[in-house]
């Protein structure tokens, strides 16, 4: 691994705190399994002993949005459900990412009908679209690895809503200024 080979020479290496934090964030993505229909079963399968999502540090599926930083939207989103998905997404703390798993969430898929949202990007910022109906678990793992890459490259200044500004400023405590 990279780390040991660097340490073996002098016993230290240089980096920035930002990069270190990104590395830590990247390797323990906690997903919020927004399992709605068939794709949810494949998402479940990616956690089973055969595919084992814990190899990528993401087996901690939390059903409460407050503890997650990645939302996997797995399944057909109907208009009625869209409000629920949005509400849950809004409750997740920044920074957060979204995987649109499957054809349905990406484009409406095979459901060109009156009650299915034709692509969740109409109301959510999607980072990765996983293709397939359903995507095989390998494909979901691939999407996860890509999102890890993306997270690893993200620096604090890239956050749309930097975490320190979301601390309640009215109370006046802990109001770190951005500069």
């Amino acid at each position: 691994m990279g780390l040991e080979s660097k340490l073996i020479n002098d016993g230290f290496f240089t980096t920035t705190v930002d990069a270190m934090a990104a590395w830590a964030r990247e390797s323990s993505v906690w997903p919020m399994p927004m399992g709605i229909s068939c794709c949810a079963i494949e998402m479940m399968a990616s956690g089973d002993p055969k595919y084992d999502i814990s190899r990528f540090g993401s087996e901690v599926m939390r059903f409460t949005p407050r503890q997650c930083d990645l939302m996997i939207v797995a399944g057909t989103v109907t208009y009625k459900m869209a409000h629920v998905v949005k509400k849950i997404f809004d409750q997740m703390p920044e920074p957060k990412w979204v995987i649109a798993m499957g054809a349905c969430t990406s484009t409406g898929g095979m459901y060109r009908s009156y009650n299915v949202v034709q692509g969740i990007d109409q109301f959510l910022p999607v980072d990765i679209y996983a293709a397939g109906c359903p995507p095989r678990p390998e494909n979901l793992l691939n999407a996860l690895m890509q999102i890890q890459d993306k997270i690893g490259k993200t620096r604090v200044k890239d956050f749309p809503d930097p975490p320190h500004t979301s601390i309640d400023e009215k109370q006046g405590e802990l109001s770190l200024s951005k500069n």
Binding site: S37, C38, G75, T78
Partner: peptide
């Protein structure tokens, strides 16, 4: 109910019998 109402019955009226087979999977 209704959070996953995908409109199968309406869609079935608009496609041939063979086309509907993949929908029965879901």
């Amino acid at each position: 109910l209704g959070y996953l109402h995908r409109g199968y019955e309406k869609m079935a009226e608009n496609m041939s019998y063979l086309e509907f087979i993949p929908h029965t999977d879901r």
